[in-house]
Design a protein around this nucleic acid. Sequence first.
DNA 1: ATCCTATCCTGTAGGC
DNA 2: TGCCTACAGGATAGGA
Length: 307
Amino acid sequence: MPELPEVETVRRMLETAIPGRRVARARISGKALHSRVPRELPRALPGRTFERLRRHGKFLLFDLSGGATLVSHLGMSGRWLFHAEPPARLPAHVHARLAFEDGAELWFQDARRFGMLRVVDTAQLGRDPSLVLLGPDPLVEPPTAESLLRAARGSRVAVKTWLLDQRKIAGIGNIYASEILHRSGVDPRRRAGFLRADAWRRIARDTAQVLDEAIARAGTTFSSYRTASGQPGGFGNLLRVYDRAGQPCRTCGTPVRRIVQGQRSTYFCPRCQHGAGPAPRPGRRAAAARPARAASRRSRKQRSARA
DNA sequence: ATCCTATCCTGTAGGC
DNA sequence: TGCCTACAGGATAGGA
């Protein structure tokens, strides 16, 4: 569920609900002891008021009164659930429950327990081990061709894998990495350190574009708690390659391919994302000359067929 | 330094 | 129906 656009959606939602509310009680579940939910939560939070909500990449930062910040990462399956009037029945995998003085509650639910919570001294946030290495947040400091070219200098990893490295850009995950590269027309297997400025320029442009569009639609996938009815994010329909192996590329009709890079799925269009520049592996051939121009016009038929 | 692999968990979808 | 396997939006420790 949670890449930057999803986390930003959560942030915006919570921002309308929790600032100004004071914690009366915090509980963690027994199972939480095995997860990354700190045992001191019940001691650290009561009496504190939520002040504002920040985000850096995929991290949510809840600033609290008294100079503390609740740092949260949703991992793969984490969710924040806000209830003005909490239901009696607790769903599975709720590891932390914060009860406010007015009766509202905020729950942290995380089936797979890859997420984490931590309470840190706000003044020391910059030294937090999980935050200190993060690269720029693309909404705050939009990447440019120059910044990307510089950051990727010398890197031999595939550009898709490079985009997932939170130390380079904070917030891009597996869905949007594929989507960005498809829009940019860059082969995901190409080595980051060998991309030229024009490729990075397109990647910079499309990173901003994809993230903005996804945020505007409240993200991809997730069965959200934003509305009482739990509407899913609306970007799923706009995905051009992710999870579409074998289906026609929305641009040219060529079947989308799925490959595995760093144990994670990558989706791309072998025609739209053929390479300008050096081949990903020492063994060339990916960029073999191909009459992409003329041939790709065949797309029109398929496009209308799908609509 | 950089890169790669395995690992932490549970839920779900698909094949038989 | 049940059983089995493969896979899932993430990060990171440790070895090469």
